[in-house]
Design a protein around this nucleic acid. Structure first.
Lengths: 216, 216
DNA sequence: GGCGAAACTAGAACACAATTTCATATCTCA
DNA sequence: TGAGATATGAAATTGTGTTCTAGTTTCGCC
């Protein structure tokens, strides 16, 4: 019964009951966030809702931010899973890259628009300095990038990495700006769309393939 | 002596002494942030350091975030002012766009690298939902965009707006990722550089000038 | 040169949640 | 079945932004 000085229980080592408890925690958080946002509930509420004691919750997650980040990760995976599923169903090369990517970014933006509390949460986690939250954010990014890499599979290496980063950046930036009430949701759609079209326009991709100005 | 229910004193209406007091507050905050970051001091410390009573500070700024945001804005303006000054000295068209912009972004990144506490602060303010902090952030963005607009003056409208947004986004995204310990400072330089070169490459700019695939 | 209102000061008091603690109950499995 | 690890529930702790109080200063104005 050491005090809670150590890292949270790692998922690998958990018994079935513990995994279930962990699951109940994250599910409760996802629900609470969906209902009214991450600021509107306390850890106590999470405990009540999940049926896991408050002290116990802290054996599973190092902080509220950590828990929130994992919940965010969960929610986001649901979204990308759907995108991937649709993508697999349709088959790959039917549509040009620009449209494929736009389809994805628009879905993501619509998702955040419909569930604005998750947009707020995303921004919060995006900039959390809690190391465990940060780790969960890495996971989210990886997942996101994986989807993009799939959509960009037939784009040459060099422009692909740049374009992917640019699109992801613009998306996050626009989202942040929207969440903090510095632009409208229409602006978000517009900026992302324009960027995707600009950065992935066929003639530009072709031009970039061999380009290699030294980077310094 | 009404309670502090109302908006903070507006700068326009202040007497000389009040402006001085406000100045002492922001200066104290800039110093404190420079020394050890925004999380390491309390409002009480700001009061002590500035010689302004705590309660009075709250007549000038609605919240700690508000005060921090204004301090950030101040610090950032110093940086951009220097850039603009150098730019004016050299005259405009001497260097190609890509190099002009890279010069600017690299300076900015180096500034944040040298004063990492301000990078942390920027990220904090960037996502603050406090309306007054948000307002100050708008100011920062405007200032930044103004610099970029100057550097991009000879780029045609349509690609200019897109490129500017892309560069700003990638810069903020990379900075955020660095601050939250999800990439190295070298990555930041690299990503921004690659983006600038890609997005502002002369042949691409030319190609984009007339392009207008419908957006809806 | 004194009045009154508004602004300032010092510092105590408050609010509010995250986090920790602990005594007790409950599992788990040899 | 019993020892040790885990979980529970509720209360205690903590840190800090923000507000409040009571006394003091400032300043325009008659």
């Amino acid at each position: 019964m050491l005090p809670n000085t150590s890292a949270p229980l790692s998922v690998e080592v958990m018994t079935g009951g513990q995994l279930a408890r962990r699951e109940r925690l994250t599910r409760a958080v996802v629900d609470l966030v969906a209902e009214s946002g991450a600021d509107s509930f306390q850890m106590k509420d999470v405990a009540d809702r999940s049926g896991v004691a408050l002290g116990t919750a802290y054996r599973y997650f190092a902080s509220k931010d950590h828990l929130l980040a994992v919940a965010m990760s969960e929610w986001q995976r649901r979204l990308t899973d759907r995108v991937i599923a649709d993508f697999d169903r349709r088959g790959v090369p039917a549509v040009p890259v620009v449209e494929r990517v736009l389809d994805y970014t628009n879905r993501e933006i619509r998702g955040f628009q419909r569930h604005a509390h998750f947009a707020g949460l995303m921004v919060r986690i995006y900039t959390s300095t809690d190391p465990f939250a940060s780790e969960a954010m890495r996971e989210i990014s990886r997942n996101n990038s994986a989807v993009m890499e799939r959509l960009l599979a037939d784009v040459p290496d060099r422009p692909r990495a740049i374009a992917r980063n640019a699109v992801e950046s613009v998306l996050m930036h626009a989202l942040t700006t929207w969440v903090t009430d510095r632009c409208t949701i229409a602006d978000v759609f517009e900026r992302v769309t324009a960027t995707v079209q600009y950065v992935l326009a066929p003639e530009r991709l072709a031009a970039a393939t061999g380009a290699g100005t030294t980077t310094g």
